[in-house]
Amino acid sequence: MCGEWWRVDEAALVERIRCRDAAAFEALYDQYHRLVYGIALRVLSDVRGAEDVTQSVFLKIWSDPTAFRGGNFGAWIARVARNRGIDVLRGGAFVVQGEIPAMPSAQDALDDYVMRKLESRNVRSALARIPQEQREPIELGFFDGLSHDQIARRSGVPLGTVKTRIRAGLRKLRAELQEVGIR
């Protein structure tokens, strides 16, 4: 067994998975399966499809743990799940590369532990306080995988307005999260 086995952090678990430690893989699954499944279910609106995506995401981590190249694990696996779900929607192949660039600044973007403690309903409540015209393009972009052009056409607003609203909405969500104690 390698890594600091007694300290349960995601980087250590992934390091142990590289050593083919099934217990570490199980711990990672226990911590993140609800997040992965929830995203897949939101993207696909299908239980069977969401289970398949969840399985493929975790087995991909088991077969190729080097795909996680550091940084915030929660942010990374959320992006992997979202991208996989959208790939399935589009009938595409599963490609993990390029999920979130491994840049030093992303490593402390947020704390997985704090995020896990934050109940989903509190996040939903923060999200509900964002104006509808800002929330809608964010959700269309993230969960439906639409491009800015597609969002603009669907919403009937100029492309520039879509970009501005997405940034304003994310900043507003960030501010709302700070209100409930997320830095």
Partner: peptide, 19 residues
């Protein structure tokens, strides 16, 4: 980027399945 990535990750957590 760092701040907005936190918001996007929170967005993902908003749909996490229940215990």
């Amino acid at each position: 980027y760092r701040e907005l990535l936190s918001a996007v990750t929170a967005l993902a957590y908003s749909v996490q399945a229940c215990e």
